[in-house]
């Protein structure tokens, strides 16, 4: 109910949804990299699969030769051959 109210408010005020609802923002650059903003930390890391925690669940990036170029408090930058990006909500 509260989430719905916030969504409506964001729509009325034309605010970005990710900021007003505290949602992650995922930017995919072709198959070269993924930028995940507003994350909650690294959950799993391997060369083929990276799982990053976000507010409402997890984002899974699958591919080859995956590397985390940068981890900051705000964003994670994943590089490598990106094949698959999945959002799992709790």
């Amino acid at each position: 109910m509260r989430r719905k109210l916030r969504m409506e408010l964001a729509e009325i005020l034309e605010l970005p949804m990710d900021i007003s609802l505290d949602l992650p923002r995922v930017v995919i650059v072709g198959d070269l990299g993924v930028l995940i903003s507003n994350h909650r930390g690294l959950i799993q890391y391997s060369r083929e699969r990276i799982v990053v925690g976000v507010g409402a669940g997890q984002i899974t990036v699958s591919g080859d030769n995956l590397e985390i170029e940068e981890v900051g408090q705000e964003q994670v930058v994943v590089k490598g051959l990106i094949k698959f990006v999945e959002m799992n909500t709790a």
């Binding site: 690294l42 890391y45 391997s46 985390i68 170029e69 940068e70 981890v71 900051g72 408090q73």
Partner: peptide, 21 residues
């Protein structure tokens, strides 16, 4: 749990880059 160390570093304001396994 090496990932946990990375998360703790990030939370403590460490600049961390070029993570590789």
């Amino acid at each position: 749990q090496p990932e946990r160390l990375v998360n703790l570093c990030v939370c403590s304001g460490f600049p961390v880059w070029d993570i590789a396994l």
